[in-house]
C-alpha cells in the first residue's frame, strides 16, 4: 500500500505534477462534490423510501428531496468551465 503511494508520488513528480494541473484539480473537485452528494442522498433516500412505504402519496416529495443534493454537483461543474 505504502510502496504504491510512494510510486504514485514519484510518478506525479516525474511527469511534472499532474495534480497541480488545473484540469485535474477541477475534475477532482467535481468528483469530491459528487461523493458528498452521494453520501447526503444515502440518508435522504432511505428516509424517503421509508416514508413512501407508509404512504404512496409521498413519492413525488420523496423523489424531489432525494435528488436535491445533486445540485451541489452541478455547482461543482461550474468550476470545470471556469478553470478549463
Amino acid at each position: 500500500m505504502f510502496e504504491a503511494t510512494n510510486e504514485l508520488g514519484n510518478l506525479v513528480l516525474s511527469t511534472g505534477g499532474t495534480l497541480t494541473n488545473p484540469s485535474a484539480a477541477a475534475a477532482l473537485a467535481v468528483g469530491l462534490a459528487a461523493l458528498g452528494a452521494g453520501y447526503a442522498e444515502r440518508g435522504i433516500g432511505s428516509a424517503a423510501v421509508g416514508a413512501m412505504a407508509e404512504d404512496d402519496d409521498l413519492f413525488v416529495n420523496g423523489l424531489i428531496l432525494t435528488v436535491l443534493p445533486e445540485t451541489i454537483v452541478i455547482l461543482a461543474l461550474v468550476v470545470v468551465f471556469i478553470v478549463g
Binding site: G43, I44, S46, A47, A48, V49, G50, A51, A53, E54, D55
Partner: peptide
C-alpha cells in the same frame, strides 16, 4: 439504518 426506521415510524 435510523433514517429508514424513523421515517416509517414517524408516518
Amino acid at each position: 439504518n435510523p433514517e429508514y426506521v424513523v421515517a416509517r415510524v414517524r408516518a
